[in-house]
Design a protein around this nucleic acid. Structure first.
Lengths: 295, 295
DNA sequence: TTTACGAGTGACACCCCGTGCCATAACCTG
DNA sequence: CAGGTTATGGCACGGGGTGTCACTCGTAAA
């Protein structure tokens, strides 16, 4: 059954990343067309040729972006994009898996960079912090060219197909983080076993949600301002909000400590609770006390 | 420019739900084909005809599910599905927007049910609890026919197109919840204003992540067991984990309280911290104390 | 320099999804 | 039964994505 399979050329680039595609089969008939990845182990491809490849890819992407912006996504055909870039229609699909991918050319590279961040993480670093650094890599990808990102955001808002494609893209980061946390929470786990994977999934989605929120706010604002700082601030909020449940560490000692507390260095908060109450209730009471002390 | 637009028939069903499609334009030429929704305000459609419609739709869905399971998703053409259901190819697209939607026939109805849950929520209920009840509606949709859900899960795991479609579907619930929380957190908000939308987004994604986790575990287990109870347990874990930050209430008083604490009813936990420390640090210290008392 | 090989490309054909359009049959209402 | 509405069948068309082959070009080997 040699039917089409989409994610063809990525088997081998992401060895354990997309195990669900199940391309272990299909023994005979090696795929005639290698998608994007030019063999990767053959020193045959000279710097000259790969540079040419990237140039064509770049021209294709810019042509697509320009056409999408001017005459709309649906109204633009792949033939027009290819013609604008000076190549044949077939060549377009040699560089991008689909028409939608031409507008998100960097997600694949970013995915491998994020994976590299996770792989090369200091074992002493808390897994959640590692994941935060990972998603920061994604944010940097957007922040690298604000104008393009803003225009792309406008398109994704009004074209359902593009929106769904982007949702699927960020879901890949989510999966990456969930898997990473699943593999690294057993060490830092301090709660009875069965619900750890739940917390891993929730934590990963929380980090991604924070990224999405900060990114969208930045995009709506026209791409002005320091996004990365905003993201770090969001991480602080996340850590303060439900870091209590998973013991998230902080590298730097809270740069923006509440000044209201500095005014009363000798003040003390005391929380007392019968242990018959649930830990959540106790923490809630403590937090309430802290609030009334701060605000 | 009367180009295609996908989400056609939903303009009017979800008045403020998908504002990005921007179908306020297109003044002339009303869409010749009303997708799925048969006018909705005309008592013209008798129970007889709508029953016929649903019967055809059901036959189409079952035929599609059967063919997808037996000969694969990509290898199955819409013509075959229509032929198996005894209708014309064109009729298929009158019941489903796309080939993928035939495998998720209930997401649209579930979306309106979830919306109804949110709309008819008791104002006294905490918004997060309302959202939890909303996502429970989604889980019930899956639990209603476990065998189909399990088989569908198998397909979505190995067909990228289906996986992306489902991701986009659950993202719609996520958006719904985020919007709801954004509109209802101002009342229950107790933290300084600017980061409330962040917390709304994170909370919504956390609830959805919990649902996804419980659902997938249940599906991997073959659809056996009480999913809804598992989801409620997951909600408890979520509430305990980061409920401290958003003041989530609980209707019932913690049915499964840790027994280890009941053994020492008179024990007391006291946490003291200089207020110069960040609230997160204080809470972490308290939690540490609670841990050593529990475990 | 010539030869051989491999990577990228252009061109053509093909499948099939999704949609507009129109004629027709079934159905309800007056 | 006449008139209007709804669902359907059938047809055609645009366009996305893929397989295939011949060709070009650059590099490495003879």
């Amino acid at each position: 059954m040699p039917g089409p399979d989409d994610t063809k050329g990525w088997a081998g680039v992401f060895p354990g990343l997309a195990p669900s595609t199940g391309r272990t089969g299909t023994p005979g008939a090696p795929p005639a067309e290698m998608q994007y990845v030019p063999h990767m182990s053959q020193p045959r491809s000279t710097a000259r040729t790969t540079a040419q490849r990237h140039r064509v890819r770049q021209e294709l992407a810019t042509a697509a972006m320009h056409l999408f912006s001017t005459k709309g996504y649906e109204a633009t055909t792949v033939d027009e994009i290819a013609a604008a870039a000076g190549v044949a229609r077939r060549t377009f699909f040699r560089h991008f898996r689909s028409k939608e991918e031409a507008i998100f050319p960097d997600h694949d590279d970013t995915l491998v960079r994020v994976q590299a961040v996770l792989d090369s993480a200091d074992p002493g670093e808390h897994p959640l912090d590692t994941v935060c650094r990972g998603i920061t890599e994604v944010l940097r990808m957007y922040a690298e060219s604000p104008e393009v990102s803003v225009e792309r955001y406008r398109l994704t808002r009004e074209v359902p197909a593009l929106r769904e494609h982007e949702i699927a893209s960020v879901a890949r980061y989510d999966r990456l983080f969930t898997r990473y946390l699943l593999g690294h929470f057993d060490e830092a786990a301090h709660r009875a076993g069965d619900d750890d994977p739940l917390l891993a999934e929730v934590a990963a989605s929380a980090v991604v949600a924070a990224h999405n929120h900060v990114l969208r706010r930045w995009l709506r604002a026209g791409g002005k301002g320091d996004v990365e700082a905003q993201l770090n601030h969001a991480f602080d909020v996340i850590r303060e909000t439900f870091g209590t449940g998973m013991g998230v560490g902080r590298a730097e000692p809270a740069p923006a400590a509440p000044v209201a507390q500095q005014d009363r260095p000798g003040a003390v908060v005391v929380a007392v609770a019968r242990t018959g109450a649930s830990p959540a209730e106790v923490l809630r009471a403590v937090e309430k006390a802290l609030e009334s002390g701060v605000d």
